[in-house]
């Protein structure tokens, strides 16, 4: 059976993770930041899957299901927070939420 080499899978996961991270850093719209975090989570999940298939262990997929659950929970909390922020500040710019500086 011709399989994809593990390096390629990990490379894809790495690229996805870095893309997600960069967009968290540069985006100011808080919804996009949330989406970017999701991308990073999925990148991590992908790395687990690749590793799981490399050693033929179920742990990788188990971990992915964990991440999926956590991401769902995170999104629900995150969206609630975003709604609140929009409600309070009338904007989705994350820099506006700097009330706790200093």
């Amino acid at each position: 059976m011709n399989t994809i080499p593990v390096e390629a899978g990990l490379l894809l996961a790495g690229i996805l993770f870095v893309l997600g991270m960069i967009s968290v850093l540069v985006r100011r719209n808080i919804i996009f930041m949330l989406i970017s975090v999701e991308i990073m989570l999925n990148a991590a999940g992908l790395a687990f899957i690749v590793a799981g298939s490399r050693w033929v262990q179920p742990d990788g997929q188990v971990m992915f299901i964990f991440i999926l659950t956590m991401a769902a929970a995170e999104v629900s909390v995150g969206l609630a927070l975003i709604l609140q922020i929009y409600h309070q500040l009338k904007t989705l710019d994350s820099d506006a939420a700097n009330k706790m500086k200093g």
Binding site: M21, L25, G102
Partner: peptide
């Protein structure tokens, strides 16, 4: 030290990274 506590989310992200 107070200045580093800027309240801007992306700054903190940079810090984490």
């Amino acid at each position: 030290f107070a200045w580093t506590q800027s309240g801007i989310l992306r700054w903190y992200m940079v810090g984490i990274v």
